[in-house]
Amino acid sequence: MTSLDHVDLALLDALAEDPRATVVALADRLGMSRNTVQARMSKLDRAGVFLSYERAIAPGALGYPLEAMVEVVVTQADLPQITQRIAEIPEVIQAHGVSGQVDLVVRVAARDTQHLFDIDARILGIDGVERTETSLVMGEVIGYRVRPLMTLASRER
């Protein structure tokens, strides 16, 4: 990962505030040329700074209003194959490998509790999955964010 300077951080802050901003709008806001902003964005993109360009879509809008976190314990040697099989389940919207008592935390979306039960059964049916524990998501209390981290990084420079 590349080292970010104050210009990169200002650009990222502007993007965090307005993710839909065009290069021209960002240039105007930051007092830079369009070419400079475009070059910086390309450099940041090549460095892997941007996670995704897709819009986050609410699963509820697609008919999947119930979300849950499924903690999965696996046979360690089978982790790559298990991860691949979990990725094939369309209701899986995110997964993280973690340390501690469980190996994976899988975020799923379901139509209702019976559907959630079926999704959990599909995960449990994967060879190498030892057990799962499922928790319903009651609501997001802190959404994905990086602006406070950018503020901290700016102060530390």
Rank of each mutant, 00 (worst) to 15 (best):
R20Q: 15
V105E: 10
R55C: 04
P65N: 05
D28M: 12
R157F: 05
T36S: 01
R40I: 11
V24D: 05
V92E: 08
E67Q: 15
G48V: 04
F50R: 01
D120G: 02
A14T: 13
S99I: 03
V72C: 00
D112Y: 07
Q76P: 04
I86T: 11
M150V: 14
I93M: 03
A21H: 03
L124G: 13
I86S: 11
S99L: 15
I86E: 05
A87C: 04
S154F: 02
H6L: 14
A10C: 12
L44G: 10
A87M: 06
A27W: 04
G48Q: 07
M41F: 10
V24L: 10
R29T: 04
L9T: 15
V137D: 09
R122M: 13
D45M: 14
M69V: 14
H96M: 05
H115N: 12
G31C: 01
P90T: 08
L12M: 10
L12Y: 05
R157Y: 05
R122C: 06
L152Y: 08
A61H: 08
L26R: 05
A21Q: 01
E17N: 13
M150K: 00
I119Q: 03
D5R: 13
E133D: 11
G48P: 12
A16N: 12
T113Q: 00
E91Y: 04
G143Y: 07
E156V: 10
V141K: 08
V37P: 02
Y144K: 13
R40N: 01
M69A: 07
V7R: 13
R147N: 00
V23M: 03
V73Y: 02
L4T: 07
G31Y: 02
A109V: 10
I89G: 07
I142Y: 15
D28L: 12
A16V: 14
T75M: 02
L51H: 02
A95H: 11
T22Y: 04
V37Q: 03
A47I: 14
T75H: 03
L4Y: 00
M32S: 11
A56I: 06
K43F: 13
Q114C: 06
E130V: 15
G139I: 01
R20D: 14
G97M: 14
S52E: 05
S52Q: 09
L124R: 15
V70K: 07
D118P: 02
I123T: 11
D120T: 13
G31D: 02
V129P: 11
S99W: 11
P148F: 03
V72I: 14
V98E: 05
P59K: 06
S3H: 12
E67S: 13
G60M: 05
I57P: 01
A121D: 00
I123K: 06
D28I: 13
S52D: 04
Q101E: 15
G100C: 07
I126E: 04
G48C: 10
F117Q: 03
L15S: 10
D8L: 07
M138Y: 11
L104H: 14
R46N: 04
A27D: 02
P59H: 02
Y53N: 03
